[in-house]
């Protein structure tokens, strides 16, 4: 991997708590943008960004279509849309659900891997399905860096387990160490 330019995170069941832990560890002015897919209800509105803002020193926002990607911001896939990444810019789509999910972790990870290659770090957290496994394989195929939450520390282990089975991931870490590790990872390469 080379200098990290984008962090992507995927989570499902239990993800709220896991996200609070990770985002809480990121300092204000964290130099890298963070894009998150957390599976959520179709008509859920601003509750999620507001909830996460409370524990994060970074602004947390639902993505608008074609929004420019800026450092030091946490971007959430909006309810009922897929979040995709092109260099420097987000895209949304209402394509069919992937692995029963819209937003889908695979869709975010695959598009980010294509656009950012070895400048991408991907994080798979707790979840009760397999979403993210294909995405992780693509991230590794394009030279990116993959961190997976230790399934033993996950509220729902199947999502991290599927990710570990899908590719040779770089780190398997207990939840509380992932945030600090990201800080380290993004600092060491500047």
């Amino acid at each position: 991997m080379r200098k990290c330019e984008l962090v992507v995170v995927g989570c499902s069941l239990g993800g709220m708590r896991a996200l609070q832990s990770i985002l809480g560890a990121l300092p204000a002015g964290f130099a890298v943008p963070v894009a998150v897919v957390q599976h959520r209800y179709r008509n859920s509105n601003d509750a999620l960004p507001q909830f996460l803002s409370r524990t994060s020193r970074l602004p947390v926002v639902d993505v608008d279509d074609k929004q420019w990607i800026k450092a030091g911001t946490v971007y959430l896939a909006p309810a009922n849309y897929h979040l995709l990444v092109e260099r420097g810019q987000f895209e949304l789509s209402v394509d069919d659900a992937v692995a029963y999910s819209r937003p889908s972790v695979d869709v975010l990870f695959e598009s980010a891997a294509d656009a950012y290659g070895p400048s991408l770090a991907a994080v798979v957290l707790t979840g009760a399905n397999r979403d993210g496994a294909r995405g992780v394989a693509r991230v590794k195929g394009r030279g990116g860096f993959v961190i997976v939450q230790d399934p033993k520390t996950a509220e729902a282990p199947s999502m991290p387990e599927a990710a570990i089975a899908a590719a040779r991931v770089d780190r398997i870490l207990p939840l509380e160490r992932i945030g600090p590790f990201l800080v380290e990872l993004c600092r060491s390469q500047r």
Binding site: D95, S111, D114
Partner: peptide, 9 residues
């Protein structure tokens, strides 16, 4: 058309 979406399809 949007590139990431197009590429996927």
């Amino acid at each position: 058309y949007s590139m990431a979406s197009l590429r996927r399809r």
